[in-house]
């Protein structure tokens, strides 16, 4: 793990650090609150922050802080899992398209073009209409949606790298395709692919939040940031933290990673 982190360091270390931070928060966050996120107590609904309820209560009188930590867990883990699927599938196919056979490139390229001609939210609606809203279905759906984009990025990178002289020399030496992919191509794609992972993570957070907001993402009793906003829409009238804080958290998460990626783009 340490070695891996060491490898990922460099141009995008700020974005990587941010993602790692959110992952930690997702894993450990729910331990930080003693309140039960599901307990419907006798507290008033949409109450203001207090010592017992750090962010007040929601539309059923549940503790907002506890629910928020749970919501972050769902949003971050679901999105990270689907990003990993999208980027590994995309990178694998992207490199295979460049290094294996020309027909593979033609086939995968066409397929990716096809998938990309369906706007992502629509594709998600279509799949969810059929497969339902289970966690696994959501993860796989988002993984499929963002795989073509990752495929394109990695294919473009790999295409540029295989033309470079050091790959030519390795091929002339008679190195195996596996060696060329693992030793010559992949290490040189790592930087830009990390940026791509960051971008796709943001996209999936946005998509999942939208889906949950529309009521077709994460379903009760589970909660994520988007569904928290949906549940507590009424709280808007009272300016309740139950509705405003999850919106702010989504914004901090995505804007933060985006800014980190954007600032590293200028670096040489």
């Amino acid at each position: 793990m340490i070695a891996l982190l060491g490898k990922l360091r460099g141009k995008h270390d700020r974005a990587v650090l941010l993602i790692v931070f959110w992952l930690f928060l997702a894993l450990l966050g729910p331990l930080c609150s003693s309140q039960d996120p599901g307990a419907i107590g006798s507290q008033p609904v949409f109450s203001s922050p207090s010592i017992t309820h750090l962010l007040g209560t929601d539309y059923l009188g549940r503790d907002t802080f506890a629910r928020l930590l749970n919501g972050i867990r769902h949003t971050v883990i679901l999105c990270f899992a689907s990003t990993l699927i999208a980027c590994s599938v995309g990178t694998f196919l992207g490199i295979a398209a460049v290094t294996v056979r020309p027909w593979l490139e033609a086939v995968t390229g066409r397929l990716a073009d096809g998938f990309l001609s369906i706007p992502s939210l629509l594709f998600a609606l279509l799949v969810i209409a059929v497969f339902g809203t289970s966690t696994v279905a959501l993860i796989i759906t988002m993984g499929i949606i963002y795989a073509p984009g990752a495929y394109r990025t990695s294919r473009a990178l790999a295409q540029r790298i295989v033309r470079l002289d050091f790959v030519t020399v390795a091929r002339a030496r008679g190195e195996s395709t596996a060696y060329i992919v693992l030793q010559e191509i992949l290490p040189n794609m790592a930087g830009p692919m990390i940026a791509d992972v960051g971008l796709r993570f943001i996209y999936s957070v946005l998509l999942l939040s939208n889906l949950s907001f529309l009521g077709i993402g994460v379903q009760p009793p589970e909660v994520d940031l988007g569904s928290m906003v949906r549940e507590n829409m009424l709280g808007m009238v009272y300016g309740s933290p139950a509705m405003i804080v999850p919106v702010a958290v989504i914004a901090v998460l995505t804007v933060g990673i985006n800014l980190a990626l954007d600032s590293s783009r200028g670096k040489g």
């Binding site: 470079l164 002289d165 050091f166 030519t168 020399v169 091929r171 002339a172 030496r173 008679g174 030793q183 010559e184 290490p187 040189n188 790592a190």
Partner: peptide, 28 residues
């Protein structure tokens, strides 16, 4: 096809490629 050449043949004939900037793997 280079992969069909015997290892000994590949050893004896070596290529030194054109572009000094791209001829070495930057991550090694």
């Amino acid at each position: 096809n280079v992969t069909d050449r015997a290892p000994e043949q590949r050893r004896r004939l070596q290529l030194v490629a054109q572009n000094a900037d791209s001829v070495l793997n930057p991550s090694k």
